Amino acid sequence: MAGVTDLGFRTVCRELGAGYTVTEMVSAKALCYQDKKSLPLLQLGEDEHPAAVQLFGSDPYCMEQAAGLAAEKSGADILDINMGCPVPKVANSGDGSGLMRRPDLAVRVAEAVIRGAGGRPVTVKIRLGWDKGSINCVEFAKAMEQAGAAAVAVHGRTKTQMYAGTANWDHIKAVKEALSIPVIANGDVFSAADAVRILRYTGADMAMIGRGCFGNPWIFQQAAAALEGREIPPLPPLAERCDTAVRQFTLSAAQKGEHIACLEARKHYAWYLKGVPYAGYYKEQISRVSTLADIYRVTEGIKRDLSDEAGR
């Protein structure tokens, strides 16, 4: 979710029903070295509660120091340790899901973050294991509980799977049955119906939506309606969806600067147009935007040319 769940996108998701949000991953080492690029990642919205700062790293001393810094700078309600990131440059260096190959070290990391958290709850996100031959999520999650974690989130894939194939919810169910602390289910929640199914199937306490919200922050209000037995609201008209996208990019530009926000908007806006008929022409224009003025211009074209077509 790096480069996705910035303050602008989280703000939009909260407005559309997300009950709990988590920052992008923040490097503990970068925080300890007072890296100027990392500090803005800790910023939460004015009303962004409950919310967590997500830390990654594998050095217990550094993680403890980073936890204290993150808690102080962000005001977050919860600190989350990412022990599930499968990206090679993270996992292969022993961080993220690399910690699942070293449970003893992972326990020391969790204990260190808990010490540094200043009384805030500490949660841990994991995967099923490194690969299908070393699935250890149940034992690993139990170790996190014993270390003092307040909750565990489980993504139903191994590290080597990355995001391929289908998430295995059976293992999430097994983790839930083995733990007394809350378990958060994650993996292949792309619709309101998926949110209902993963919770019923696994018995988990919460559903975490990751890739399913790319370009679709409305999934949160749809999932909430489905879980409450209400009628699922449809996606709004394309023009309104574009306005939401522009609001997201404007918020992001205010936080991180127009240039960076617009570069990141290229992928986000393409996600917002996924499945829209005849959107290829505008996706090609979006791939070159570099200013908010570019985004406004493209948006006007989309509203003029595609909104009627998408509504048919």
Rank of each mutant, 00 (worst) to 15 (best):
M83K: 03
L238P: 01
R200S: 14
M25G: 03
A112G: 06
G156N: 10
I232Q: 14
C32Y: 07
Q222M: 14
D188N: 15
H155P: 01
G118T: 04
L251H: 09
A223D: 09
G8K: 03
L273M: 13
R10F: 08
M144R: 01
H155K: 01
K283V: 12
E64Y: 08
K29C: 03
Q221C: 13
K37H: 12
T11D: 04
L235Q: 14
A91T: 03
Y282M: 07
K173M: 11
G229C: 13
V196K: 12
A141C: 13
A70P: 02
V122F: 00
E240G: 10
L7M: 05
K37Y: 09
L227E: 11
H49F: 11
Q161F: 05
L251P: 05
R108I: 01
M162F: 09
R10C: 06
G19N: 12
D243F: 12
D59R: 04
A153S: 14
A76M: 01
Y281C: 03
C85D: 06
P103S: 12
L41A: 10
Q161D: 15
Q43S: 14
N168W: 10
S180E: 14
A18L: 06
T21L: 04
V107F: 08
R120K: 07
A245N: 07
L7I: 15
Y33V: 03
R101W: 05
E64F: 00
M1L: 15
E240F: 09
L292V: 08
A207L: 08
K256Q: 14
D170H: 09
Q221N: 15
P40E: 11
Q146F: 07
G165L: 11
L99A: 03
D243T: 05
R266T: 11
G129C: 08
V90P: 00
C32P: 03
A52G: 05
I295V: 15
T123H: 01
E284D: 13
Q146H: 08
G98L: 03
K267F: 06
V189M: 12
R288L: 15
S307I: 01
A70W: 00
E111P: 04
A204D: 04
I302Y: 07
M144A: 06
K36P: 07
C213N: 05
D59N: 15
V196A: 13
S307D: 15
L306T: 04
Q248W: 02
E240P: 06
I302S: 04
